[in-house]
């Protein structure tokens, strides 16, 4: 009896220690970025592009990186959403045999697990093959779309699996076709999952550095066409960190702070929207 209680005590202690380690290290990460990033933020740094020697310690800001990141992540998320929702709806057993659907799910899971740098290399290979050097907005968008498709599709798919079959059956019995049921009934019922999936994909897309690093190049201005090189928040952090000057390096924390705030904002919006959209769901 004593030994069992001792074991209980020991493991409870270990658990508390590991929760402490996990929470401590994660809080440490956030505090480091906030404490180092917030002081270097100013209106100026947020509203100017980096053309005036931002990397050399002179003035200027990183508005071009913010705009660049949004120009990369928004179209990529839009495309990935259109493709993702089509696939997720088609994976229902109304359309596909469960065996085939499971095979596609495995493929998507593998694609989800593929490191983002592989998508970067994939786009880089195509760029080399068509003789393009330096990178462009277009290939950045393609890389991010490929990265986000499995994430968005699988999240939507998981929430579509939860749609009660009675709901679908009543739609069928009212005379609606398979596609109408999928596009009108199932889509509405799965709305919270769809929102969560899309925002999850957007968060991953805007924060991913490895695929962007290989495909978009760099620029001090706003991109004016889709074949231009562009700056983005994650690549700008890498560029700033590699500079020798300590003052310039510190600006990296300001950029990271903005990136962290965007991610935080996305997750708050997700919570709000999922709560709001799950109001009308039939349980």
């Amino acid at each position: 009896m004593n030994r069992r209680n001792l074991e209980e005590k020991i493991f409870l202690g270990l658990m508390l220690a590991s929760v402490f380690i996990v929470m401590g290290s994660l809080i440490l990460i956030v505090t480091v970025i906030v404490l180092n990033g917030a002081p270097s933020l100013s209106i100026e740094i947020l509203t100017q592009t980096s053309e005036g020697g931002f990397y050399l310690g002179a003035g200027g800001g990183f508005l071009n990186a913010i705009v660049g990141s949004l120009l990369l992540a928004l179209p990529a998320t839009g495309l990935a959403f259109l493709i993702g929702i089509a696939i997720a709806l088609y994976l229902q057993k109304d359309f596909l045999k469960p065996g085939i659907a499971n095979f596609i799910r495995i493929c998507l899971d593998i694609l989800w697990g593929v490191p983002s740098v592989v998508y970067g290399v994939f786009c880089l290979t195509i760029m080399i093959a068509i003789g393009m050097t330096g990178g462009s907005l277009l290939f950045g968008i393609i890389a991010l779309t490929l990265l986000e498709i499995p994430i968005i599709t699988r999240s939507i798919d998981e929430s579509i699996k939860m749609v009660p079959s009675g709901l679908k059956e009543s739609a069928y019995s009212l005379g609606s076709s398979k596609f109408e049921t999928a596009a009108k009934v199932v889509r509405r019922q799965a709305m919270p999952g769809i929102i969560a999936g899309v925002l999850l994909g957007f968060g991953r897309g805007i924060g991913d550095a490895a695929s962007i690093l290989l495909t978009v190049g760099d620029s001090n201005y706003f991109p004016s066409s889709i074949s231009d090189q562009t700056a983005a928040l994650p690549t700008m952090i890498l560029n700033l960190v590699s500079m020798p000057d300590q003052v310039v390096q510190n600006k990296a924390y300001a950029v990271a702070f903005v990136l962290l705030m965007i991610v935080l904002l996305i997750s708050i919006i997700t919570r709000y929207l999922t709560k709001k959209s799950s109001k009308y769901i039939i349980k």
């Binding site: 952090i237 990271a256 996305i266 997750s267």
Partner: peptide
């Protein structure tokens, strides 16, 4: 969901 570049920094 925090980007890896933030962890790296």
């Amino acid at each position: 969901g925090v980007p890896s570049v933030v962890f790296g920094l």
